[in-house]
Design a protein around this nucleic acid. Structure first.
Ligand code: FES
Ligand code: FES
Lengths: 131, 131
DNA sequence: AATGAATGATACCCAAATGGTATCATTCAT
DNA sequence: ATGAATGATACCATTTGGGTATCATTCATT
């Protein structure tokens, strides 16, 4: 039961870094040291963040990445949704492999609300909180 | 972000089944139909449950598995711990790959307490509840 | 004692997800 | 032109999850 995968982990570090020293553009080469990850991998993550609208990018010399949104409004829950996909619950529910008690089952609903609460808690944490 | 894996899923179904028709011993062959899973796989899971003390087993002809504990006291949280292992949080914490802000990081504690709450919620659900 | 129904233990295998690298194209300041 | 930067994408390697196969052991029945 791992809550955050690597992508989210590194993304958080990078975003926090950018939130701290608010520069017009930070290249990957200027972050990979502190984030403790290889350049190419961090770059791939940053590109995902760019596509999801968390950061914007500037190509060419002097370019790099910068926050596209107020760090106080970048919520962990959104990062999780963007970088490690949605909810799957258990296979009985999402995979269509129903068990014999399906109609009377009290489990599905409970799991759904649990996952909901989890995401709420994640949504309560912003990049600013962590900077 | 999947809460329950297959093992737990099938285990719950089997335990609920046993709680319903309280027989002295149910063989795997008598459960695999309703649980909707292959015999060998269910058997492997049942063996795990036996090793963890949730059920006891009787070998030989007429044997099988039976609940070793009151179904009202078999909690989902325990099943998760026994069948899909403990907590890993993110790699910054569990993997020892600390990031640059480790000492000041507010994330680890939050994740830990979130996971704790999740397990509490799971612990509130018993096999009896689901039967 | 022999048989067959059952679990115990363990090794193995396959597929999917995760984590990570490599390559080439594109943009842009100098 | 050059070189520093990202965009896009294909590829690879490791781990995990899900599942099968096999042989050993136990025990009720005959
Ligand atoms: S576990 Fe199958 S319906 Fe709930
Ligand atoms: S994410 Fe590294 S110390 Fe918190």
């Amino acid at each position: 039961m791992k809550i955050l995968n690597r992508d989210v982990d590194y993304a958080v570090r990078a975003l926090v870094l950018m939130a701290r020293n608010d520069r017009p553009a930070t290249p990957v080469a200027g972050m990979r040291e502190e984030v403790r990850v290889s350049g190419p991998f961090l770059r791939k993550i940053m590109q995902k963040l760019q596509r999801s609208g968390f950061v914007h990018s500037v190509k060419g010399k002097g370019g790099g990445f910068a926050l596209a949104r107020d760090p106080g409004n970048i919520r962990l829950g959104e990062l999780v949704s963007a970088l490690q996909g949605g909810i799957r619950l258990n296979d009985c529910v999402s995979g269509g492999k129903l068990c014999a008690f399906h109609s009377a089952c009290k489990l599905r609903g409970r799991l759904a609300s649990m996952e909901g609460r989890l995401l709420e808690e994640l949504a309560a944490i912003t990049v600013k909180d962590l900077a």
